[in-house]
Amino acid sequence: MLSHPAADIGAEAVAASMGVSNERAAEHAGATPRSHADVTRFFHGTELLDPGVVQLPEWRPDAESGPGALPMWCGVGRKPF
């Protein structure tokens, strides 16, 4: 399972947020927003489960409440046997 900040959803807001976050976490490696295609490549060699690499609410579209649309991509991959 993976969730990752998006570079292609709300790009300006995500870049600003990542800048603040990376500045505060100077001793740690900074986060880098990535595009849908870039995040999808992280699943190479796995069986990508439906609905694929999507925004979080698309995993449980029938849920009554949740965070709404977030500028993040998420997915679940399973190693083939």
Rank of each mutant, 00 (worst) to 15 (best):
L56G: 01
D62N: 09
N22D: 12
A37M: 06
A29C: 08
A7H: 00
A13W: 06
D50I: 13
T46C: 12
G45P: 10
C74T: 09
L49C: 12
H36C: 03
V53E: 02
E58S: 11
H36V: 02
W59Y: 07
G68E: 04
A31K: 04
T46V: 12
E47G: 07
R34E: 13
D50E: 15
V20T: 13
R60L: 11
R24Q: 14
G30T: 04
H28G: 07
H4A: 05
D38W: 03
R24H: 13
L48C: 12
L2E: 14
S35D: 03
W59V: 06
A26Y: 14
V76H: 05
P57I: 05
R60G: 04
P71Y: 07
L48S: 11
F43M: 08
A6Q: 02
P5D: 00
R24G: 13
A7V: 00
G66Q: 02
S35K: 03
S17D: 10
R24E: 12
V20N: 08
A26F: 15
A69P: 02
T46P: 07
F43Y: 11
P51Q: 10
A25Y: 08
A63L: 09
C74W: 08
P33G: 02
S35Q: 04
S17A: 14
D62V: 04
P57D: 06
M18H: 07
K79C: 08
M18V: 10
A16V: 02
H4P: 06
A11M: 04
N22G: 09
A31G: 03
P61Q: 13
A13L: 06
M1V: 14
S65Y: 10
G68Q: 03
F42Y: 15
V39W: 00
I9V: 05
R78E: 10
T32P: 02
R34Y: 08
A26E: 15
L70I: 03
L70Y: 01
I9N: 00
P67D: 02
P57Q: 12
P67R: 01
N22L: 11
S65L: 08
A7D: 00
L56Y: 05
S3M: 10
S3I: 14
E12W: 01
R41S: 15
A63C: 07
D8C: 02
G66T: 04
A25L: 14
P80R: 15
A31V: 04
W59D: 04
P57M: 07
A16L: 03
A37Q: 10
A37V: 08
A26L: 15
P80E: 11
E64V: 07
T46R: 12
H4S: 09
V54C: 03
K79S: 11
G52T: 05
R41D: 15
V39A: 01
E58K: 10
L49Q: 15
V76Q: 05
A16F: 03
E47R: 14
L48A: 11
G30Q: 05
R60C: 07
